[in-house]
């Protein structure tokens, strides 16, 4: 964490807002969008149930949807329980299991991402954190059912991407998405984590920056818990996107998804040919 003396800037303010402990978490989104229809499904059928990832089925109007969210927890007790939203391999494997299940029934998948990153620990390494993420990237690319990902806070590197190989990726106006935390970047490159604000700017990690880079399709207004109308319009938006993509053939769907990622970076790269 950068100390109080750090000179802040607009990009870093966004990082702070994305990490704000008071903001809504995945559980709030699930409650507001799916209400009583949500049924949580646990476990990766391999090792255990990772509580950093909450997943299950819910009804979006008349359509059953598989929803997978990274949950940071809303108070200290919950945050400990949820490992601060840092998933282990079994979390990513639970997500993949439920995505495969969704594919079987051609049920759309909604992913809600809010994580500082995949957990860097001994157990996570021993159980193949890299392999778990890699497998999700591969399998999601050809999953024969619509996938939509919304970043609702922090999007930290591979741990976020493992749920973001989607047909479209949306971001809340106060969310960020980056290959590395600005503190990590500043301490590696400039040996000074107090330079995190400069790093935040250089990394172009805000929703607005990423929209400009063509990495996300839509920026969503930040909903508040009591703001039922906001959630209604979000539901409508999600539902319309699924409806549109459910009409596509498997081939069109996966072709579009591959092309989406094929395009990113190329649009930027004047140097690529």
């Amino acid at each position: 964490m950068a100390d109080k003396n750090t000179q802040t800037n607009a990009a870093y303010e966004k990082v702070m807002a994305a990490r704000d402990a008071k903001k809504l978490t995945a559980i709030d989104y699930i409650a507001n969008m799916f209400g009583d229809s949500f049924i949580e499904l646990h476990g990766d059928r391999r090792y255990s149930d990772d509580k950093a990832i909450i997943a299950g089925l819910g009804m979006l109007y008349d359509t059953p949807v598989t929803v997978i969210g990274i949950e940071k927890g809303r108070n200290t007790k919950e945050r400990m329980e949820r490992n601060f939203g840092q998933a282990h391999p079994e979390g990513y494997r639970k997500a993949l299991r439920l995505m495969k299940q969704a594919e079987k029934f051609r049920r759309p998948v909604l992913c809600l991402v809010d994580t500082s990153g995949a957990y860097p620990g001994i157990g996570a390494e021993e159980r193949g954190q890299g392999q778990a993420i890699a497998e999700n990237l591969m399998e999601m690319m050809t999953l024969k059912t619509p996938i939509l990902t919304i970043l609702i806070g922090e999007g930290g590197s591979g741990g976020a991407l493992a749920l973001a190989v989607a047909d479209e990726v949306w971001m809340l106006e106060n969310s960020v998405y980056s290959v590395i935390s600005p503190e990590g970047c500043a301490s590696i490159l400039w040996k000074d984590s107090a330079k995190a604000p400069q790093a935040a700017e250089a990394l172009r990690m805000t929703a607005q920056d990423l929209f400009g880079l063509g990495v996300v399709e839509r920026i969503i207004r930040q909903p508040k818990a009591e703001d039922k109308a906001m959630f209604e319009s979000l539901k409508l938006l999600v539902s319309r996107t699924f409806e549109k993509n459910l009409k596509l053939s498997d081939e069109e769907l996966t072709e579009n998804r591959y092309a989406r990622f094929r395009r990113i970076g190329n649009a930027q790269g004047g140097s690529l040919d």
Partner: peptide, 24 residues
């Protein structure tokens, strides 16, 4: 990942994985 290329370097993980999957 190469952090100087920010999110674009992260996206390479998805892109390459997609190409591997098609080959597979």
């Amino acid at each position: 990942a190469r952090m100087q290329e920010g999110i674009l370097s992260l996206m390479q993980m998805a892109k390459t994985s997609g190409a591997v999957k098609r080959h597979s």
